[in-house]
Simulated assay, not measured.
Amino acid sequence: MPQKQDYEGQCHCGAVRFSAHTDLSGLGDCNCSRCRRLGWIMQSMPEADFTLLSGADNLTTYHFNSEMIDHLFCKTCGIESFARSSDGKGNVMYMINVNCLENPPKVDREAIKHWDGANF
């Protein structure tokens, strides 16, 4: 089983920075109208494994569909480097955009989990 590592990521302009402690073993994408346009590669993690390092005051929130996910965007460059929601038990979860990590790993899109958000 892969070991968790510490990663750092940011939006395009660097105003929003975060760290994540994860093994990147649950990579996925989604075909909903929003994710399809953004080309996200997602990795979820519990709140304890995510830290917002800077830029909280530079984030703006977007909700759509069920309004259950806080899509958090940098006000300066418009990049959504992570989102926040909760699992079915009420635990806060974060979803990072792996493409926003510093030195992002190479990802084989055929080998990741595909979420059918378009028909959810």
Rank of each mutant, 00 (worst) to 15 (best):
S66G: 00
L38I: 04
T22N: 06
C35R: 01
R84L: 11
S54R: 12
S81K: 03
Y62W: 11
F18C: 04
R17E: 11
A56V: 13
G39I: 00
G78K: 11
E110Q: 14
V98D: 01
C30H: 01
Q10D: 10
D6P: 06
G26Q: 06
M93A: 11
G26A: 04
V107C: 02
G55W: 08
N97Q: 03
M1D: 13
T51N: 10
F64E: 01
S66E: 09
H21K: 12
I69P: 02
C30R: 00
S54F: 03
L53F: 07
K113T: 15
Y94G: 08
L52A: 11
L52E: 09
L101N: 08
H21I: 06
C11N: 05
K4Q: 12
G90Y: 09
A83M: 11
A20M: 06
C35I: 01
E67H: 15
M45V: 04
F73W: 06
Q3P: 12
S25M: 12
A83W: 02
D49N: 14
I112T: 02
A48N: 12
N91W: 09
D87L: 12
G9R: 11
C11A: 02
K4T: 14
A118R: 05
H63C: 06
D6F: 14
A83G: 14
Q10N: 14
L72W: 07
N65Q: 10
P2R: 15
R36E: 12
L24Y: 02
C30P: 04
D49T: 12
V16S: 01
M1S: 14
L59N: 09
E110V: 09
N97D: 04
M45N: 04
L53Y: 07
A20Y: 08
D29C: 03
S19A: 15
F18L: 03
T51C: 11
M95S: 11
R37A: 09
G28D: 05
C77V: 07
H12R: 07
H71P: 07
C74H: 10
P2C: 13
R36T: 11
Q3D: 15
